[in-house]
């Protein structure tokens, strides 16, 4: 009997592939970067030039995420109808996500403009600027949440259908955004900049890694006793065809290695040499890679609920 026509066969979702994983990762990471960059700028942890480059990179990542989504759309004329995407904001999470990112990009772009035209009335330190900053943070948070809600909303795939998935996605968005900042700092300010901000950044990253590890554990644990399709998803994740990207990519490279390095940095045990800085930047790269692989694994093991 052809497996496709078997009642007992687990139906794996194949509609959303690595491109959607990349889109969701970029959505979360761009929202996270924009949010973290604004917060750290408010507390004067990072300099203005770092914040501006962070804002541009955040905008670039959000734009790239939309481009990746565009490449995933149907071939031929279908994908060129993408502007219809705003038509069902009341119900569709794809619609809501497109709306959120459009507004976020518009607001963030507005916020950068006073750096170019200094006379604009919403510059840093003004009341209008503060409102704008608050709105940007709100939409960045919404964009991070969207990257999980777009999956968790539907009951068709039990492994995704839980409030813990958006929680994990928001957590990972913060983590990836925070991990991108040291890379930006080293580009703008060099190794000296990394040393001066390290006392805040490394403990922040350490806390985020631990929280995300716990959230991920809670998510997997809660699904291990759920619908049979969710249990099969976990089996494939931990023992099946996704075990390598999961154990090596998400857990080892994405969590354990950065946890060790960032812990050493937080305790000032890693030194301040050029080599130490590059090790720390590598740890940040590992976190970002883990963030992508998490979305990839979650999508890959999505299995529909059985008919009967």
């Amino acid at each position: 009997m052809n497996q496709e026509f078997s009642i007992d066969n687990f139906r794996e979702q194949t509609a959303w592939d690595w491109r959607i994983a990349f889109y969701l990762f970029l959505s979360g990471a761009s929202g996270g970067l924009i949010f973290v960059e604004i917060v750290l700028r408010i507390f004067d942890v990072i300099g203005n030039s770092t914040a501006i480059l962070g804002a541009w990179i955040g905008l670039g990542l959000a734009t790239l995420s939309l481009f990746v989504l565009f490449t995933h759309l149907g071939a031929g004329r279908a994908r060129w109808r993408a502007f219809y995407v705003f038509l069902n904001i009341r119900h569709s999470w794809i619609s809501r996500g497109a709306t959120i990112v459009t507004i976020l990009m518009g607001l963030r772009f507005m916020f950068i403009l006073p750096e170019i035209w200094h006379d604009l009335p919403w510059g840093e330190g003004t009341l209008a600027g503060s409102f704008l900053r608050g709105a940007i943070m709100l939409f960045a948070l919404a964009f991070m949440a969207y990257s999980g809600l777009v999956l968790s909303w539907w009951k068709s795939i039990p492994f995704w259908n839980t409030f813990l998935l958006p929680v994990v996605c928001i957590g990972y968005s913060f983590l990836c955004g925070a991990a991108a900042l040291p890379i930006i700092i080293i580009i703008v300010e060099g190794i000296d900049g990394l040393e001066s901000t390290g006392s805040v950044l490394w403990p922040l990253l350490l806390v985020l890694i631990i929280i995300n590890g716990l959230a991920l554990f809670a998510y997997i644990k809660s699904k291990s006793s759920d619908d049979i399709a969710a249990q099969e998803s976990i089996r494939r994740l931990t023992q099946g065809n996704s075990k390598r990207p999961w154990w090596i990519g998400v857990i080892l490279i994405g969590l354990i290695v950065p946890l060790i390095i960032v812990s050493l940095a937080s305790l000032n045990l890693i030194g301040s040499s050029d080599f130490a800085s590059y090790v720390l930047i590598t740890a940040c790269g590992c976190i970002i890679l883990g963030g992508y692989l998490l979305r990839y694994c979650v999508l890959r093991v999505g299995i529909y609920a059985k008919f009967i």
Binding site: H72, A78, I94, W154, S156
Partner: peptide, 12 residues
Amino acid sequence: CIGCQACVIACP
């Protein structure tokens, strides 16, 4: 239709 396949995901 833009071929985003959100309906394919949502349909049980």
